[in-house]
Structure formats: structure tokens, C-alpha cells
Design a protein around this nucleic acid. Structure first.
Lengths: 322, 322
DNA sequence: TTGTAAGCGTTATCAC
DNA sequence: GTGATAACGCTTACAA
């Protein structure tokens, strides 16, 4: 006999009343509540979550889909886990390592009611395929996905990029190189456009020969610095796809005795912990806030509440590399 | 009507037979299997995991309890997630951030049958309190906990330390400093003993004045290096509690123009990615393997199978800092 | 090889 | 306020 039944028996009350006490329903006499609560304590009772989930159709679990983990993603995840917990939700992590099959597991779990909703940090399956799962529960993505088939909390990185450009310009740097990420990504496109329109509006030379692509990690950054140093002309400043790239560029520049920022200014992106330690000027990316928004967006449909979003903004963090 | 019922109806078979097909029971005629499988496909059927869990008493979910996340812990977690997945288990992460209440949630989840088992990476509650939860499901810890109240897959770090010592000794370094972690931790104790007995056996001076404690992060390492440099006598070599500490010591040494390894040799611990990039000699810690062992230990009781453990060993990784 | 029926532990909808 | 009773969707003896 389950503990639930035991409570019924001992208290003399029915299933329904016991359930009401468990769920803090107001329609219970103080006496009944007292008696039942006591017995529950006595029995060290805790409800079986599977039974509750089966009955209510809610698991109070949300999945996070990602292919890899690193500091930036961790920032997003940790914040999400915290926010979710405040609302009584647990977070379960699906790391696909780039395998579409494994990734799909997360979506099948939404279908099989193992999770109530899903957050996509990075995914490898075709967005159109994933879109089909939206009928089984709310899904929200961090980054913009394809043609907005799936809602996202993405910000336009061009805004951040402009901040960096204005800063460099005000400091007198005009010969500016760019270390971009994936050439075809929406973010890169957006940044490139921002750069070009800014430079043109100031009647400055758009130095497309100094565009570098696929600069993600610090070793990519080192590599990028090498190419710049061995090129015909050193730029006065570099804008980086992220802080890791900036770290690589900075350390390789030091190795080559290039003075930063006198000979070369460096601006990172994201504002990770390490860039604070190393004194790298960067653009603060409100990742934690985006994460919170992601949860709120799910919660709006799960809890049938209003969604209130506030506009988030990037911020320039001036440090020693400019 | 649920899809399950729909399948019953359409196929004309009973609940039991449908269930048998779902679970690949051999006691089904080919015909029945065929018909039912077809209808399942047609209906795009997937079992409700809550119902399955309620019925079987198994969730196929395992929780990982940790207070923080970082590269080392991530290594352990990622490997665990992979291994678990191979056995059809999902992993759910509980990050307590040092809050005992939040941490306890994970254990309550074991009790409420949300997870089948638990792995402890780092915890803040009293081991004796946690031990009480072992009656609800298997629990295994990465590090040794208290008086072995909870089983662990820990290794004796002294073994790794000896490797480092022998290496330094063979290279002729005898004036050796130690940058330990938490002064009272079992690991530190174990390392200190290993150090002292090694030195004594070689009739070398045990330089206790050069013991430094609470050196965890790279900035702790920088701090430690500062103290060493400002001390009366520079050691010939430093043994570090982990690679981060080694990184800090290395970078601060460079800043002070102390030649590594000519004036100062450095040995890290764990063998993280960054120490490979930076060329730091270190002791390889088989973290992924310990993680796998942790799962196997849980699986032994969940799957009622034999537990086969192989002895893991540390390994010296010689690089540029010695 | 198949079916019947009794769980699994809750919640939810009625009446009273 | 309280209590029957029917879901929730699936597994598993036990029979046949």
C-alpha cells in the first residue's frame, strides 16, 4: 500500500481530502488539515512525481538543447536553471555534441511529455523539422533560427558592434580590421553591414582585405594576429567576434612585442570573466538577461500569463586594450 | 482517447499485446507486430514517459549534484551524460551554488522518484544527512565523502603527486615548494604526506615554510608566485594543486622575468586543455574514466548487474615547464 | 500467442 | 467541506 493510501486509512479521510491538503486547497477544514499534515510528517511522505505528472500532464521540467558547453553557454544555462527553479521548474540539459540524432532526442522528449518546454542554445537539425515539435509544447531559441520559424530572444549584435566602432572612432582609430565568426552566419552579416555603413557614413575606408573569418577560439585569434602581423600593413585596431578571439590576438601581439593599445587596439565581445582579468575592452552582452527572457517566454505559455519583455542593450566596457 | 487506446481499437488487439509490441517482447506473432507497428507509425505514436515511469517505477533519469561548474567538472559531467545516454539514461543537473536547501532538492527528487540515482560532484550538506537518502536509490560520489558514508570513485591523489615528485627529482630539482588547495581537505592531507615521505626517503629537506594553501584559481596562483618571489629564497620547483594555479604561477613568473623552467619549474595537476596549449607539465587525471566508473557503479544496482571496476592511474605529462 | 484485470499514485469532476 | 469515482497511459501477473 502506498503512503498516500496509508494516510487515507489512518486519517479516516478520503483520497480527495488528502489530495487537497497536499495541494494546499482552501476547501479543507482546519481539523482535517491538521490531522492529515501530522500523519504526512509522521510517515515522511512525499508525493510521487510521476503520478503527479501523469495526472496533471505537467512535468515541471524544461530541457535545454545545446551542442557544446563553454563559459558563455554556461552563463546562459546557469541563469536559466536559477530562473526556472524560482518558478518551480527543473532544467534538464541535452548536449548533442553536434549529433542530430541525439539532439532530436530532446524534441522527442517534449513529445513524450518528459519535459514541458524546450530552450535551444545551439542546434544542428533543420529548423523546419524542429518547428513541427512546437505543437507539443513551447520552444524558444537563444539565437535567431532560420526564418524565425522558432521564436527567439536574440539581440541584434550590430547594436553592440556600433558601440565598439564609435568608441574606436572617438579614440582616433580609423584603420580597423575585423575578426568575424562564421562567414555566413546572421550575426556576421549583421556586424559586417554595421561596420560598412558606419565607415561609409564617416567617409572612412572600408578595409575589406582585413576581414578575417572563422575566428572563434583564442588559438584562432593567435592565428589571426599572425596573419595581420605578416600582412603589408598593421591595422590600428581590431574588432573581434568574441572575447576568446580577443585574448588570442592580445597574447600573440605581446609575443611579437606589438604594443597594445599604442600600436594596436583590441575590442572583444561578450564580456566574459577572463576579459575582465586580462583588461580587455569589450562589449557587454546581457546573456543572463536573455536567458531570463527565454524562461519568461516559455512561462508565458506554460503558466498562461502575460509576457512582459524589456528591451535589452549592449554596453561598452572600457579597459586597457583601447 | 489516448493514442494507445486508439491503437488497441484500430488493431483489434488488447492493451497487453500493444504493450508487448512497444516493448519488443518476443511473445507476439509476426502478424500482430506488423499490424500494430503500422498503426503506431500512422498515428505517430510515442509512449508517455510519465505513465511508463509510474508503472515501472523507473524514470531512466539520473541526477548530478554540483555546487559550481567549471572546465574540470564539465569534463566529468559531459562524460557522464554520454555514458548514461548509452545506457538509455538521461542526466539532470542540480547546481546548488553552495545553497544546502537547493542541494537537498536533488535528494528529495530521488525520494519522490523523479530520478533513479544520484551522482555527487561536490556537496555542501552533511554527509550523514545525505546518507539517509541511500535507501531511496543508489548514490555515488566523485570525491571521497567523510567517513565513506557514501560510496565514491575517488582516486588517491598522492599517487599522482609521487609521479610529479619523481619527475622533479630525476631532473635534479630538490628545493621544492607546494601550492596546496584547502588546508584541511583529504586531498591536501594525502598530498602533503606523500611529499614529506618522499623527501625524507631521499634525505632531502622538507620545506614546510614554502607550503602555501588555498591556491585554487589562476589568480590565487599569481598571488602565490608573488609571495614566493618576495620570499627569502626562490624554490627550484613548485607543485600545484591544479592546472589553473599553475597557469597563474607561470604567467606571474613571466611577468617577473623568472625563467621557466631554468629558474623555476612548474608542475600542474589534472591536465586540462589550457595546460596543453600553454605547455605546462602536469599530471593527467583520468577524470572521464572516473565519470564512467561513477555511472557503472549506479548501473550495477539499477540494472542489477555485476560491477567491474578497473584500477585507474595518473600519468605524467611532460611539457615545457620542467 | 493473446486477453483480462489489477495495479502504479495522483488529480479532477461531480455530487452531496 | 467532503467523498465517490473516474481519469491519466502504461505494465504485468495470471489465465486461457
Amino acid at each position: 500500500m502506498s503512503k498516500f493510501d496509508e494516510i487515507m486509512k489512518r486519517s479516516g479521510y478520503s483520497k480527495a481530502t488528502v489530495s487537497r491538503v497536499i495541494n494546499h486547497s482552501p476547501y479543507v477544514s482546519d481539523e482535517a488539515r491538521q490531522i492529515i499534515t501530522d500523519i504526512m510528517k509522521q510517515l515522511n511522505y512525499i508525493p510521487n512525481r510521476n503520478a503527479v505528472s501523469l495526472s496533471t500532464g505537467q512535468t515541471k521540467q524544461i530541457g535545454i538543447v545545446t551542442s557544446t558547453t563553454g563559459e558563455i553557454i554556461l552563463t546562459f544555462m546557469n541563469q536559466f536553471i536559477d530562473t526556472a527553479m524560482d518558478f518551480g521548474f527543473q532544467t534538464i540539459i541535452y548536449t548533442s555534441r553536434g549529433d542530430p540524432e541525439i539532439e532530436l532526442q530532446a524534441f522527442e522528449d517534449l513529445r513524450s511529455k518528459r519535459v514541458d518546454g524546450l530552450v535551444i542554445i545551439a542546434c544542428v537539425n533543420d529548423p523546419r523539422k524542429l518547428k513541427a515539435y512546437m505543437e507539443y509544447g513551447p520552444i524558444v531559441s537563444w539565437q535567431r533560427m532560420g526564418n524565425d520559424e522558432i521564436p527567439s530572444v536574440a539581440m541584434d549584435q550590430a547594436e553592440g558592434y556600433k558601440l565598439a566602432l564609435e568608441h574606436l572612432f572617438s579614440r582616433g582609430y580609423t584603420r580597423i580590421a575585423n575578426a568575424f565568426g562564421r562567414a555566413e552566419s546572421l550575426n556576421t552579416q549583421s556586424r559586417r553591414e554595421a561596420f560598412e555603413s558606419f565607415m561609409k557614413s564617416r567617409r572612412l575606408h572600408v578595409w575589406t582585405e582585413a576581414y578575417q573569418y572563422s575566428v572563434f577560439s583564442s588559438s584562432d585569434g593567435e592565428e589571426a594576429m599572425r596573419r595581420m602581423a605578416e600582412g603589408p600593413e598593421l591595422p590600428q585596431a581590431v574588432l573581434c567576434s568574441n572575447d576568446y578571439a580577443a585574448i588570442g590576438i592580445l597574447s600573440e601581439a605581446r609575443r611579437r612585442n606589438i604594443q597594445v593599445p599604442e600600436q594596436l587596439a583590441i575590442v572583444g565581445f561578450d564580456d566574459i570573466e577572463l576579459s575582465r582579468v586580462l583588461g580587455i575592452t569589450t562589449i557587454h552582452n546581457p546573456i543572463a538577461e536573455q536567458s531570463t527572457q527565454a524562461f519568461h517566454q516559455l512561462w508565458a505559455v506554460l503558466g498562461k500569463t502575460e509576457l512582459k519583455t524589456e528591451q535589452l542593450t549592449y554596453q561598452l566596457i572600457e579597459r586597457d586594450t583601447t
